[in-house]
Amino acid sequence: MSAEAAHEASKDMLEVVHENLNIWGFPHDAVNFGLGPMDLKTLVMTWIVMALVILFTVAATRNMQLKRPGKLQLMVEEMYSFLKGLAYENLDPKKGASLMCLLFSLFIFLLFCNLWGLIPTMMSPTANVNTTLGMAIAVFILVQVLGLYYRKLSYFKHFVEPFVFFLPLVIIEELSKPLTLAFRLYGNIYAGEVLIAVLLGLIPFTINFFGGFIAMVVWLSFSIFVGFIQAFIFTMLTIAYIGQVTAEHH
């Protein structure tokens, strides 16, 4: 079998697997709600993840105690303390404190998005490049706004330092940041879902067992690790980019 034929066969296999896993009947084509074409499944999964994040954080913080904190409270406090340490290492403490709500929300949302696809019949919103690119563009805009806010017009100096003819290279570097943020996260999460589909294709009878439950369990440990790492990297790079543009000597 030629390489082209093998590629077509694997593509057909993945299409069959995805069709069998689509037990909720999501349309294959993008749906237009008047704002342009949207992937209905990604949209629904994002709404579900947002609701889960709200429920998780409310449940973890509604009855907070100092002497006997609950397990959820301890989990949230550990994540918050970890992100706080990273922020304070890369940012001025005053600036870092003002961004902690944003950074914690970003990390917890990405973590839930990355892990949601491990549940049979569900899909990680971050396995869609539109989700990751939208978040990366939002971070890029935030970085530029904070740079202007803290450094005023002196923020533009780094575009022409040390020589003005470096300007095109600096602009390319700035524009590459949201692209690398988006495609790194998307590539890792999407690759995990493709590998799950490949496992299901190699063992076809598992597709009908609760949306591929067996393959999900086999891939579970590694996918949880990747989900945590990718959420951490995205948040860490966001902190680093903000630290670069808000530093006194950029």
Rank of each mutant, 00 (worst) to 15 (best):
L106D: 00
K94S: 12
L146D: 01
V76E: 09
P168F: 07
A231D: 02
A138Q: 03
W47C: 15
M13E: 07
Q144L: 08
S221M: 12
F222Y: 12
L35P: 07
V143E: 00
K67L: 11
Q73E: 15
T121K: 09
K94G: 12
E8I: 00
N188P: 02
S105I: 12
E173N: 06
A60I: 08
G192T: 03
A197G: 03
H249C: 06
F234T: 03
E193C: 02
L91G: 09
G243R: 05
I229Y: 11
D29W: 09
L175E: 06
S81W: 13
T235K: 00
M135T: 01
W24C: 12
I229K: 13
L181R: 01
S176A: 11
N63R: 15
F56Q: 14
F156C: 04
N22E: 02
L55F: 10
Y186R: 00
K84Y: 06
S221Q: 12
L35E: 11
F56E: 13
I239C: 02
C101K: 14
I137N: 03
L118T: 06
M50D: 13
F213A: 03
W47N: 12
L195Y: 05
K67D: 13
A3R: 14
R62G: 08
M38N: 13
P168Q: 08
S124C: 04
V164C: 03
T61I: 11
M75D: 11
T46P: 00
Y150D: 06
A215E: 04
E173D: 09
T42Y: 04
S98G: 13
